[in-house]
Amino acid sequence: MSNAISTKTGAKAWSSSPGLATASRIVAAIFAGYGLAYASTMFLTVYLPLVRSDRVVFASLASFIVYLAAIVYTFAARSASRAWLVLVGLSVVLAVAALVAGDFGARR
């Protein structure tokens, strides 16, 4: 199956390919991962069904776990570009959702 072949080459790429893909993953993990953690905190601060101070605290406390998961995912992902796509895509969705609510003046 083509899928099996691509995972195999993915595994191979990790061990034998030049550092470029790895460097890309490292940058993605550190920066895009933090971006996702930041966006998820914004999102949860707006949408958690709690009073404001609790929303801020729980959203902020969850951020480290989001960051951790994003980092691990970045290195587990099939390719570096896929990791970038997922992290940046999710971040944009979450951040926009949070900002839209702010634009309506909701939950301030």
């Binding site: 966006a39 905190t41 914004m42 404001r52 929303r55 605290v57 959203a59 902020s60 480290f64 949070a98």
Partner: peptide, 28 residues
């Protein structure tokens, strides 16, 4: 990490309290 969360992850404070940390601490 959680101890200094407001430094490391200021997003919640910015969105929820427009960055006013004193207001937040007063409230909580």
């Amino acid at each position: 990490l959680a101890i200094f969360v407001t430094f490391y992850m200021p997003a919640g404070l910015k969105v929820g309290y427009k960055g006013d940390i004193e207001k937040m601490f007063y409230e909580v």
